[in-house]
Amino acid sequence: MVGAHRKLPYLLLLPALAVIVLVLLVPLGYCFYLSLFKHSLGTGSHNFIGLKNYIALLSDQRFIASVFRTMLFVAVTLTLEISVGFGLAVMMHSLARGRGLVRAVVMIPWAVPTVISAMIWGWMFNDRLGLANRLLGLIGLIPAPLVWLADPTLTWMAIVIAEVWKTAPFVALIILAGLQMIPIELYQAAEVDGAGGFQKFRLITLPLLWPTILLALLFRTMDALRVFDLIMVMTGGGPAGSTEVLSLYNYKTLFSHLDFGYGSALSMTLFLLVMFFSLVYVRIMVRRAI
């Protein structure tokens, strides 16, 4: 009985691990294997070259620039998403009525397929027909229509807005679930002790919510690092390559250059980058748990 009890947790993990092996380990192994070859179908070559693809990455200006862009994207969108998402969650939580309806509306952006929302936002920023120019023109902020997607800075604003619009609801839903998990008795007890609204927030809500916020941050970081569909559809990496993030460059090497060796090395690098950030989060989480 004791033996069975000790094995039980591992048995419970088994199905999860089996799925992981199938959809992660095998592809990962395949990807790593390919990354050791000069394997380009476009030129028909296939030679084992060890880690040379990885060494070549270090002097690839386009790769380095795309990594910086990815980091910038993660930093900017994450800050905005967490602020907006947190605000939305608190608002939804404080509503006495109609919370279900509000939650359903807030979910809409997340429920619109990315491919479609990217098309919609592309339209919104169209120079002649787009809503953005018309609204800004209406309130007199701009004298002439802006050509949003031909200017790197404006394009960045556009993709950040589109991304935050799409993913802040994800953050909001997770944080709302966390808020709902906090036992109401804690607040009641605090009120008996005479705590005000802000004190309740600082002493009860925030500490109990931290793990959930970190969770939302972790998953958003992992996804933002791999952002693909949105930018691919909205700009294709343009204007002038200024929104080419790592996954986009990766896609182009794999599917358009058919450079499977180098492309796989790029995929592995992106994987390691995500892994690195995840480890940082996990460390923070473990520390807090102790």
Binding site: D223, S264, M275
Partner: peptide, 9 residues
């Protein structure tokens, strides 16, 4: 880590 590999890969 199952959510770490880029899907295109």
């Amino acid at each position: 880590s199952a959510a770490m590999l880029p899907q295109i890969a």
